[in-house]
């Protein structure tokens, strides 16, 4: 029974991981930029949800669309006014990396000033309930988060494969030069994509905040986990991302059985390094070896 319970816990957790990772992977896939501010956006989503909940009494389910729009706008603005001016590719990579890292630090500090560094949590009417299904307990909040994450990924998949905008995004990811020639406004697509990735991060942060307690450093571990998933799952495929997220969640959840508890926190990091080293040729579906 314990085994089944852990399995269910892993699956539910995987939904959130997949969502966090997809935002990071999308931005990398289209812009070739590793968004180190991703962790900051996850954190911002959590705190925005907290503010709306505690000050205005908004249920996270209600504030979700609002947070999606705000995060999207933030990403869009960040791209238009800052990221756009940076060099890309092999030699320019360090610059966008460092700059977005700086953005993350500023965001962390801003949140710290407003909310202090204390641990926070969003408690809703449904956060402590659990359903019982064939003897296995299903925490309601985790089920809802899983469902919403799946919904968001499904919607994104639809957007990317079935709509004009989605097709433009995928075309730009393939070959920006020929898109310019075909009359697609590549800069617009970049800004849009940066916004989409940020929106995914913000909403994932909000959903995460309904499950976990958080403080201004919330997002750093999540960023690393997102990397593990993107690296394992490849780029652009919702199915690949989802299965990689499941692998990570399973490893984490079952590590509790074999490892002393203080080491389970390091599992994600070790997995990250292992994956980077063992699958360097398949990273993001791209060659990254020098």
């Amino acid at each position: 029974m314990r085994f089944v319970e852990l399995l269910v816990a892993a699956v539910l957790l995987a939904g959130l991981y997949a969502m966090m990772a997809y935002g990071l992977g999308l931005i990398y896939g289209v812009l070739r930029i590793v968004n180190l501010a991703h962790g900051g956006m996850i954190m911002a989503g959590a705190y925005l949800g907290l503010a709306l909940h505690d000050r205005l009494g908004m249920d996270p389910l209600l504030s979700l669309p609002l947070i999606a729009v705000v995060s999207w706008s933030f990403g869009w603005l960040l791209y238009r006014f800052v990221v756009r001016h940076l060099p890309r590719g092999a030699t320019g990579g360090a610059q966008s990396l460092l700059l977005l890292f700086g953005v993350w630090l500023v965001m962390r500090n801003a949140v710290y000033l407003i909310f202090t560094g204390n641990d926070q949590a969003i408690r809703t009417a449904w956060s402590t309930h659990a359903w019982k299904l064939a003897g296995v307990s299903l925490p309601v909040n985790r089920v809802i988060v899983f469902g919403l994450a799946m919904l968001a990924l499904g919607g994104l998949h639809f957007l990317l494969t079935r709509t004009y905008v989605g097709k433009a995004i995928r075309a730009v990811a393939q070959n920006p030069d020929s898109c310019t020639r075909a009359g697609i406004d590549v800069e617009k697509v970049y800004a849009l994509t940066f916004g989409l990735g940020s929106a995914l991060a913000g909403v994932a942060g909000l959903l995460g905040a309904t499950i976990f307690s958080f403080n201004p450093s919330f997002g750093s571990v999540e960023l690393l986990k997102s990397f593990v998933v993107v690296v394992m799952g490849g780029l652009g495929s919702v199915a690949g991302t989802a299965s990689a997220a499941l692998v990570l969640a399973l490893v984490e959840v079952f590590a509790i059985l074999v490892l002393p508890s203080y080491l389970t926190g390091a599992v994600g990091f070790v997995l990250l390094v292992l994956v980077l080293v063992l699958r360097p040729g398949g990273l993001f579906g791209q060659k990254v070896l020098g």
Binding site: V34, G93, A94, F269, V270, V273, V277, V288, G290
Partner: peptide
């Protein structure tokens, strides 16, 4: 063997672990 951002990200993992 990794270059650019990939090495940097691996080092975040190493440092935290």
């Amino acid at each position: 063997r990794l270059r650019g951002p990939y090495f940097s990200i691996a080092t975040i993992g190493v440092g935290e672990a």
